[in-house]
Nucleic acid binder design. Structure first.
Lengths: 346, 346
DNA sequence: CTGAAAGCGCTTACAG
DNA sequence: CTGAAAGCGCTTACAG
């Protein structure tokens, strides 16, 4: 890689003059400037950004702490983040949070050493441990937490309106005449708790009874536990007529379980998901679900973070600002997996 | 952020002594060293890695050019990459290749400016344009291309054994008695062409006739074209009894189309996918598919790249080394979407 | 054992 | 218009 001093030598000018010419600063003769520009182009010169980062104290780099890169929902969030960062000329260093945690290492060490200007926390299926919350706390740069809220609410947050989405989903089922509705929950994460709360609000609003056994809490995410649990619930003679699943993945497993038990969907059992992932429309039957907008969430999170960085740079708000909590609206997408409640046998 | 000079001032030692103490170099008194270490810990000092990068000429940073972050297959690949990079103490800068291309900007500019040591190219649903191939060519650092081969085969490559996978899938159907088998192809990408070739090899091996109309080539990826095309093929009175789909996503759409036409799976029509994504096991019926190991692919790609960087650093092979092409084995996973060929009506 | 100085690749006042 | 010098934050020979 050619350096500035290489270029300046070739052009027989001082290193300062070469710098001025290449950065478009005034104070260089027209012909000199052109000569330098040409040589730089010819040698494919690229100024070393790390130098600028050192000099300015801004690395123009954001850390993205990823937990489930393979999760399509997380992937869309990251896509939104990258697009906002790209617009603002920032780059992203992606770390696999779970990997660092596994190896018992300081998660943020490398990000601190690389002087990132801020951190974006992608959702995790596991709640953060106390020691990592402590590490985050001692990280004196802006942090935005995405999708899953952290206990304490100490950080800026962008997520979906989970409670409202589950409320609407449940209302939809109630409108269809369902009276006994179950929930396939995942209460380890904040979105799971919010969605169950939305479910309960709708049930209570209509004075409908809830049974504990209709609301199982799934314990493990990356397994077929949801499928097994749904089968146990649905294949018993005594099952709800509709199920609000924590997300599309659980809903898919519930549908598979229903098929397994010989139940027809939606004639015998209605199922509703959350997320509207790429496959939701192609399940059999196609899935009614609460659509989230992960790309928008990711973009907003990045924009919020960049705003905080800007604030910090300009010295406003020397005191830590009050954390913001932004909830992006969701939308119920009605497809074929929900239908009128079956008429009870006479 | 405290700097080395801050620490050295506090400890009343020279900046060089502080450096030696913190990097564990010899030549510092026991008590002095401890004092410095303590102060550094107390102030949460982190050496600026960018300085080291400048001094050593190695940024310890890899670029990951992502095209479809939201694609779970790509996500798994990235996960594998990150794990290998993490082990080797490298960090990754992720760029969204499609985003850069859209904005007509130089894709690699920012990566060159940040002095990345190598580049990992994630798969894209679109083949690379000539101008971007040219840009890659002028990028004088090791590059490893993943999953999708580039025309010319000029770069190191890690992918799946696509042709073999499709061959095995087709053999499986032939063993089940199927004679007229269709393929839902995607020929814009190299994996699509390789899979079709594997399909054809099996058909030819058994002397089975192939009909052009049974082998439609899907043109658009992110749409329901596969579903529409499959419906047209399957709902006509004159349909194959089995379908080898380019991947799980197309297979899922084919299954939806079959349901739509009132066909039973696998009694009337067998469908087979490629990838074994998370949802494959939960489709109805569960999907027979060729399982790939994207995490392994990603890890191998990163290891290969790191090896090239090592080679380059140690000056071996001053001439560009011959590109390697590594194919990770695949495995047919038989589930419920394939079954014996229907007996023809008498 | 400790410190002063050079140097990594650049930008930016400051002289000429 | 052009160049010499300081400085960003560090490491590493080289003196003392």
């Amino acid at each position: 890689m050619v350096s500035l001093s290489d270029i300046s030598e070739i052009c027989d000018v001082s290193i300062g003059t070469a710098s001025k010419a290449l950065t478009g600063k005034p104070g260089v003769g027209q012909s000199t400037r052109e000569r330098i520009l040409n040589v730089a182009r010819q040698y494919n010169y690229r100024a070393n950004r790390m130098v600028h980062a050192m000099q300015s104290g801004q690395s123009m780099t954001i850390g993205i702490a990823c937990n489930n890169c393979q999760d399509p929902f997380t992937g869309e969030i990251v896509k939104g983040m990258l697009s906002a960062l790209y617009t603002a000329q920032y780059d992203a260093i992606t770390i696999s949070w779970d990997l660092c945690v596994e190896s018992q290492e300081s998660v943020l060490r490398t990000l601190a050493e690389r002087r990132i200007d801020g951190l974006l926390m992608c959702p995790s299926a596991k709640p953060p441990s106390a020691s990592y919350l402590a590490e985050l706390n001692s990280f004196h740069r802006p942090i935005v937490v995405v999708d899953q809220e952290f206990p304490g609410g100490a950080y800026d947050f962008v997520g979906s309106d989970d409670a409202e989405g589950a409320f609407q989903a449940t209302e939809h089922l109630i409108q269809l005449g369902h009276r006994r509705i179950g929930a396939l929950s995942f209460l380890q994460v904040s979105t799971g708790r919010a969605r169950l709360a939305g479910f309960q609000r709708a049930m209570i609003r209509h004075g409908l009874a809830m049974k504990e056994r209709d609301m199982p809490d799934i314990q493990t995410y990356e397994s077929d536990e949801a499928s097994v649990t749904a089968a146990r619930l649905l294949c018993s003679g005594d099952a709800p007529t509709a199920l609000v699943a924590f997300n599309d993945f659980f809903a898919m497993q519930a549908i598979a379980a229903a098929h397994h038990c010989g139940l027809r969907i939606p004639e015998d059992i209605s199922v509703i998901g959350f997320a509207d992932l790429g496959y939701a429309a192609y399940l059999h039957p196609s899935l009614t679900t609460v659509a989230q907008t992960p790309v928008v969430i990711g973009r907003r999170a990045a924009e919020l973070l960049l705003g905080r960085i800007e604030q910090k740079k300009s010295g406003e708000n020397a005191a830590a600002p009050t954390p913001v909590c932004e909830r992006i609206p969701v939308e119920l997408v009605v497809r074929k997996s929900t239908g009128p409640a079956p008429t009870p046998l006479p």
